[in-house]
Structures are given as C-alpha cells and as structure tokens.
Simulated assay, not measured.
Amino acid sequence: MNWKKLLSFGKSKENNINIEKCGISEEAMTIVRRNSDGKLHPFYKGDLYTEKRVEIAGIYVDAKQAEAELLVLKLREELMAINYLAFICDSEREKIGIIPGSDQFEILQLQQTNGDNYNISNERVISKLREWHSSHPFTVIGADYDWVEANFDVLPEGKELKTLAREIAEFCPDIVEQGTGSINGLIEAITETKKMDLWWD
C-alpha cells in the first residue's frame, strides 16, 4: 500500500518517518478511508505545558463540524472490533482522532484532560468518569485537555439524574456557572441532548 499517497503527507523525509510511526494498521486505515474522504494527518501527543510534540499516538482526519459526531459514532462501531478508538479531538469539532486502544478512558489519558484551575488532575477526571460510567454507562465521543463530551447509553432519570447532575456541577462548576445557570438547567440540558458535557476554563 502507498502510505505516503494515502496519508497525503508530501515528500519530506520527516513525513516518511511519521508514517512509519503512526501505529495504525492497514485494516484500520481501510475503515477510516471507507467512511471519510477527509485528509489524514499524524496525531501527536503533546506536552500540555510546553505545547511541544512528544510522540505520534495515531492519526487524525479532517471532518466537517456538522458531521463530526456521526462520523465518530460510525468509526467507533467499526473500529471497536479491531481495538481502535475514534473521537473528536479539537474544540472546533473539525478533527477526528484515531488511536489504538479498547478502553475509552485512554482518550482522556492521551488528551491529558484536566481541571487544573480547580486542582483536578487528569487522574481524578478519569477516576470520576469511571465511577459515573459504572452507574450510568456512556460513550466518550470527544475530549481535549480541558473538556469531555459523552453520550449516555441509557439516560438517567428521576432521582438518579438529579443526583448525577449535582455531582457533575460539583466536579465541574463551569458547566453551571458559565453554562446552564442552575442544576435544573443542567438536568434539562442532559435530558434534551442525552449528553454529558464537561469543561474547565
């Protein structure tokens, strides 16, 4: 297979090295290409505090903002069988990351998702989301260093939803203070979207 042409990286020696290190199987690449005609790029894990590129973790594909979620869900369904994950990896919703892995919380680890301004580490974010997932399963469809987006597999209702909304507001105050304005507003947003959106400014 002509990896250089497939990935549209150009002709530089550096890009040839990147292709070899992207860690994506031919089978996974075929699935991505079958579902998207967006340009492919190496997806780097960066140093959160220096913004330096550290290592190539996979690839990302350009996407249209309005189509990003549907593309992620379609890719996740097909890639899951061969142990790859797909997720929205930028706040503009125009990049879909594809990385090896079967545990969706690896996405948060890779993206170093945190609430540093509330002294909430990446480890705490992952631990809290695992805790919520055990009671209210959800699918992580996007994340970056300061936000997470997930779709509930089954929407919590009644007292369970109220309790969860309070826990979300306590763990991520910005969702209420800069977003819904109240716990009731958060409950309404979760009910309407069937999503859990967290961010820390």
Score class of each variant (00 low, 15 high):
residue 2 N to H: 02
residue 2 N to G: 04
residue 4 K to D: 06
residue 6 L to R: 13
residue 9 F to P: 01
residue 14 E to M: 03
residue 14 E to W: 10
residue 14 E to D: 02
residue 15 N to F: 06
residue 18 N to M: 07
residue 22 C to W: 14
residue 24 I to C: 12
residue 24 I to V: 15
residue 24 I to A: 13
residue 25 S to L: 07
residue 25 S to N: 11
residue 27 E to P: 10
residue 29 M to P: 06
residue 32 V to R: 03
residue 34 R to C: 13
residue 35 N to D: 11
residue 35 N to P: 09
residue 35 N to G: 13
residue 36 S to Y: 00
residue 37 D to F: 11
residue 38 G to P: 12
residue 40 L to C: 11
residue 42 P to V: 03
residue 43 F to A: 03
residue 44 Y to W: 15
residue 45 K to N: 13
residue 46 G to A: 07
residue 52 K to T: 00
residue 53 R to L: 08
residue 54 V to P: 00
residue 55 E to P: 04
residue 55 E to Y: 02
residue 56 I to P: 03
residue 61 V to F: 10
residue 62 D to Y: 01
residue 62 D to S: 11
residue 69 E to T: 15
residue 70 L to P: 06
residue 74 K to P: 08
residue 74 K to N: 14
residue 75 L to D: 05
residue 75 L to K: 09
residue 77 E to H: 14
residue 78 E to F: 05
residue 79 L to K: 07
residue 83 N to T: 08
residue 84 Y to D: 04
residue 87 F to H: 09
residue 88 I to S: 02
residue 88 I to E: 03
residue 91 S to L: 14
residue 91 S to I: 10
residue 94 E to G: 10
residue 95 K to V: 02
residue 95 K to W: 08
residue 95 K to I: 08
residue 98 I to N: 06
residue 101 G to K: 04
residue 108 L to Y: 05
residue 108 L to D: 04
residue 109 Q to D: 11
residue 111 Q to E: 14
residue 112 Q to V: 07
residue 113 T to C: 06
residue 114 N to M: 01
residue 115 G to H: 03
residue 122 N to S: 05
residue 122 N to F: 01
residue 122 N to P: 00
residue 123 E to T: 03
residue 123 E to D: 14
residue 128 K to M: 01
residue 128 K to T: 05
residue 131 E to V: 00
residue 133 H to E: 01
residue 133 H to C: 02
residue 135 S to A: 05
residue 136 H to G: 00
residue 139 T to H: 13
residue 142 G to E: 08
residue 144 D to I: 04
residue 148 V to C: 09
residue 154 V to Y: 05
residue 157 E to D: 11
residue 158 G to T: 01
residue 166 R to M: 14
residue 169 A to I: 09
residue 172 C to P: 04
residue 173 P to K: 09
residue 177 E to M: 15
residue 179 G to Q: 14
residue 179 G to E: 10
residue 183 I to R: 03
residue 185 G to C: 08
residue 185 G to H: 02
residue 187 I to F: 08
residue 188 E to S: 07
residue 188 E to R: 11
residue 195 K to P: 12
residue 195 K to A: 06
residue 195 K to L: 10
residue 196 M to G: 10
residue 197 D to F: 15
residue 197 D to P: 00
residue 198 L to T: 06
